[in-house]
Computed example of a mutant assay.
Amino acid sequence: MSSSDGTADAVSALAPDIGTGTCAAPAGDGIAEGADRSADWSPDQEDTLDLRLPDELLALFETEQPRSDDTDTDTVTGTDPDPNPDADSGTGHGRRQQSWGDTTAPASSLTPADGGLLDGVAEWGPITTPVGAFQLVPVCVERDLPLVCRWMNDPAVSAFWELAGPQNVTEDHLRSQLADDGRSVPCLGVLEGAPMSYWEIYRADLDPLARHYPARPHDTGIHLLIGAVTHRGRGLGSTLLRAVADLVLDRRSACVRVVAEPDLRNIPSVTAFLNAGFRFSAEVDLPAKRAALMIRDRALSDLL
Rank of each mutant, 00 (worst) to 15 (best):
L14M: 08
Q167A: 13
A24E: 13
W124E: 00
T128I: 11
P214M: 06
D88G: 15
L60A: 15
Y202E: 02
T48E: 15
T271H: 07
D180M: 07
I18R: 12
S109Y: 07
T129D: 10
D50R: 07
G227H: 15
W199G: 07
R290P: 03
L145P: 07
S301G: 03
D86W: 05
N275I: 03
R95N: 12
P106Q: 09
D9W: 04
D219E: 15
D47M: 08
T20A: 15
W199R: 10
E62I: 08
A159D: 09
L110E: 15
G116F: 02
A194D: 01
T22C: 09
P146S: 09
T79D: 07
D114Q: 08
R265Q: 03
D119I: 02
R242V: 00
T170K: 03
A299T: 03
I295S: 08
L118K: 00
G221F: 04
R232Y: 00
L293V: 05
S109H: 04
P208I: 01
P287S: 10
R252H: 13
L209P: 00
P16H: 09
L57M: 01
S3V: 03
C187Q: 00
V131R: 14
H93M: 11
R257S: 06
S281F: 09
D72R: 00
P208V: 11
R252T: 12
L224S: 05
S4K: 08
L240W: 13
P214K: 01
A113C: 01
W100K: 07
V190I: 11
L304H: 08
V148I: 14
L209F: 10
A133P: 13
D180I: 06
P16T: 03
L118S: 05
R251N: 08
E33V: 09
A159H: 11
D285V: 10
S269N: 13
Q65R: 15
F273S: 05
D180C: 09
D219V: 04
I31R: 03
V244T: 04
T91V: 04
I18S: 12
E33I: 06
H231T: 10
